[in-house]
Design a protein around this nucleic acid. Structure first.
Lengths: 166, 166
DNA sequence: AATGAAAACCGAATTAT
DNA sequence: ATAATTCGGTTTTCATT
């Protein structure tokens, strides 16, 4: 799906405040409220963007976050990714190129919870040849949006603006 | 800040849909709209939760995501984390225990953009002793919320429910 | 893109804890 | 003092055109 300038600006605004009234966005952009509503609907439907509440895990009772680097038998990466992605504790799963094949971030209540996950569930998944766990000490930044890339040549560049954690 | 059951349920609902009307949430929980509004305000003020629009980087014109593992001179982790967190391209910065000291996820337009970041900016930061880059091939899951942990013993457990990417 | 009706929001005053 | 409800006027949303 192709984005135009209006889409990009709407995204930028909602990245700052997901509950910003459509009328305010519309005013700022000089378009009608209906258009903003229509665009937001479309962006959401096309899964380009979504508006969600996000909570800081460490503040809502989860005390342990771990990044697990996983090596997988060649050809089984997708399958393993799907499997680990089904864990409710999994907050992030990405396949990567490099020394490891998968990155899995999990959010757990405590050490016992993670131990259970690692020993009783993760290690039973077929195709995994090794895991390496990194205890997450502190999250310094988590941007929930990734900003809007520069506009095409000729137009003024828009800020590349991730929304910082705070 | 302490969360009660109402806070947790509000978070859970907004994790599903950040624009869910407060009145609907209130009805579902059997409390007044004013209370929901008050709690959301407080949760936001205390930085326990925020409601934001999040966009899929790969669908809004960013073509390259990279996870960079960083080793840092002992004692300089916080400082380096702060520095790299200032990059607008940084979407995720966490200090970790293990083979690496920092994880940095960046979102770039293209290879040239990343090359510039790596060579001209990242490698000039003092305290960094080595970097290791993992090209992100595919993001299989990105949960923007981390669910709500089980309620205290005696109460019925609540679903540990991250919001899946789709 | 505009309209009008229905719904939701917001500030303030009020009561309860 | 902090938390929760209620109530009005205002704004937003939504269906229809």
């Amino acid at each position: 799906m192709d984005l135009d300038d209006i889409d990009r600006q709407i995204i930028a605004q909602l990245q700052g405040d997901g509950r910003r009234p459509f009328t305010q966005i519309a005013n700022e952009l000089g378009v009608s409220e209906g258009l903003v509503r229509y665009r937001v609907q479309r962006l959401t439907r096309e899964k380009v963007m979504q508006v969600v509440g996000i909570a800081d895990p460490l503040k809502i009772g989860f005390d342990l976050m771990v990044m697990v680097g996983i090596r997988v038998t060649p050809g089984m990466v997708r399958e393993v990714a799907d499997r680990v992605g089904k864990f409710p504790e999994a907050s992030y799963v990405a396949s990567i190129g490099g020394d490891l094949d998968l990155l899995l971030e999990v959010v757990c209540r405590d050490t016992a919870h993670f131990a259970d996950l690692l020993n009783n569930r993760l290690h039973h998944i077929e195709g995994i040849t090794s895991t390496q766990t990194f205890l997450i000490l502190e999250i310094h930044k988590m941007a929930y949006g990734w900003g809007v890339p520069d506009a095409p040549a000729g137009e003024r560049p828009r800020p590349h603006l991730p929304v910082p954690r705070e």
